[in-house]
Amino acid sequence: MLWSRRTVFMALVVGGPVVVAIIVRALVGMDLLSGRGMVDGRPITVDGPIIFGLMIWGFYLRFAVPLLGVFYGTALIADEVEDKTITYLFTRPLSRGAVLVGKYLAYLVSTGLVVLPSVMLVFFLVVPVLGGEIGSAFPSLVTDLALLALGLAVYGALFALVGAWFKRPLLTGLVFIFGWEPIVVVVPGYMKRLTVSYYLQGLVPHAMPQEGLVSTILSILQANEVFPSAAMSVLGLGAILVGGLGLATWLVERREYVLEQ
């Protein structure tokens, strides 16, 4: 899994924020970025932790985590079917469900060991600029890391189910994260409860710095959104994780995968 072609893609996805962080650091070092500006006629000042919070929000939670979940989660079973190697796995003396859970755990370790160090690099590159302090921002880093790990776990479980169920899981997954979720989350009503991002983003404000600019930007981004409480978010994510992985296991145990000759 780790040394597949997707690794190049994954490196690009998680390397992008690191490059952006290096650019931010360089711009600040050359006094080309002051962290001061105007929003709606109001002067605003941003510092390193605020930039880090925005990068976590924009680069990782909104983009990298769902995308990695789709690419790797759907591949857990679908790739084995497509590459006609699933026979080798299913003829092993262990249950099919155990195979899937093992591959899911490998997915968690692989993506976690790529995404989380990337976040760590971004943290140490960005947070100290413009007067930010690493020590003060450390609790938010821990929260963000936990949130990203939770996101990877939930999206992975959901797309493991998609991979075990649908014939074209990658396309289905991409439609889900770039079509269904962004649209439904901003539509009034109860449909947003059928998304992962609704519950995941419900936890984000607890992880984001509570400074003025962030609040302003979040209020713009979340103008029509009513997020659940933290407890509700955790419950929802837990249900998706357990339900997704359980259903995927159940499906893999009972389904006969016919390989095209």
Binding site: M1, D79, K84, Y88, L89, K103
Partner: peptide
């Protein structure tokens, strides 16, 4: 067929 991807 020779496997080209997947876990192995």
């Amino acid at each position: 067929n020779e496997p080209s991807g997947g876990t192995f």
